[in-house]
Design a protein around this nucleic acid. Structure first.
Lengths: 205, 205
DNA sequence: TGACAATTTCGACTGCAGTCGAGATTTAAA
DNA sequence: TTTAAATCTCGACTGCAGTCGAAATTGTCA
């Protein structure tokens, strides 16, 4: 690697490190780019050479972490457990992670769910990567006759994902307190499943 | 009404009018509060006497409109039509309205779904008002045995709402183009319904 | 090695959201 | 009507996100 590229790596990491430190200590809103630049040991303009906006810095950080978490998530769930249980494990873990810091989570969700024109493609790719991790789980569940086989995997994932967003929203607006999220998720996932299940007769109480 | 209150009414309206004019003409981002104040014929500080933030101005405008639309929405749907049809009518109309202006819609959705700490209570109240309009529709559907009676109305509304948000998100991230939204909504609502329907055997194709 | 091109760094600068307190207007009480 | 308190109005001011072009660093080729 050339000197130039090496330095770029180092500088980028320094900015990210400074971001983690300052965002964690003082929050996102209360951290100015100038301050961040100083801590990272670079000029303000340099920061903008690596990231286009302030939000993008936070996002780079979150995505890094999420990438880790996604892989963990999937390995976390017992592949032979009922699909409801697996989905609950996955989405509750994600929920807990994203809401660890309320402010981070809000910015992250806003950007992810309703991205700006320019970022849209990025988020799409990320989401797809995430969905790909979930597909095998759903396929196995289809194999076990826990999910209808005439539905597309994308639509099933989407269904769960939509309900997950709903819960996040309910939490952010204060409709559901933290300690009730788990119950609420089970309830609404079950509601969804009773339509997603292959057929008909009264199965789950 | 006292002179004071009268003047306040007039000023507030002037600000709102200026906002509508400028936001529509130049977009939200490209309109500065100073410009807006000038058009409204007041000082910058005065604007902040009526609205706490710039976003709040847009939001006041949107909510005004939405209030109208909600009432229309509900009267729009044929109360005896199948629940799927009614829900589609309502949510497609809302979708078309909110996405009329992509930028407005995005800001509106971001704030509504993931509100700031301070605004949360406001949005909650609004959402509830909205849900109240939908409840009668669901109740009638329950009466016609189109929806399970053992589910709470709030949970059913929530379910549809969550899927609606999902579609908005899919649209904003470019996953679903405008012309396919309607089909996608029908598909995913049907998916939901097949679990929401009272019982068991194959009913809808 | 020297010298020119390409890239990177920097902080002064611009523009705007939101604050603040001094002054103007309205209300209430005598 | 006078006066003092309450409320409203204003634009200068602060602080920060993001821009820009001049200067510094690195790469390239003779």
């Amino acid at each position: 690697m050339s000197i130039r590229e090496e330095k770029k790596q180092i500088t980028k990491q320094a900015i990210m490190d400074a971001a983690i430190t300052l965002f964690s200590a003082n929050g996102f809103e209360n951290t100015s780019i100038e301050e961040l630049a100083k801590v990272a040991g670079v000029g303000k303009g340099t920061v903008y050479g690596y990231f286009q906006t302030k939000k993008e810095i936070l996002h780079a950080f979150c995505e890094n972490e999420l990438d880790q978490i996604y892989k963990e998530l999937v390995s976390l769930a017992n592949p032979e457990a009922p699909i409801l249980e697996q989905m609950l494990t996955i989405y509750m873990t994600e929920f807990k992670y994203v809401t660890q810091n309320k402010e981070f989570g809000r910015i992250f969700m806003r950007q992810t769910i309703f991205p700006d024109e320019n970022d849209a493609k990025n988020f799409l790719k990320n989401e797809d990567k995430y969905f790909q991790l979930i597909f095998p789980i759903l396929e196995r569940a289809q194999g076990r006759d826990e999910l209808r086989k005439d539905l597309e995997l994308l639509h099933i994932t989407g269904h769960f994902y939509g309900l997950y967003i709903l819960l996040m929203s309910a939490w952010y607006s204060g409709r559901i307190p933290t300690e009730e999220i788990s119950t609420a998720m089970e309830l609404i996932f079950r509601q969804a499943l009773e339509g997603l299940q292959p057929h008909s007769d009264s199965k789950s109480k």
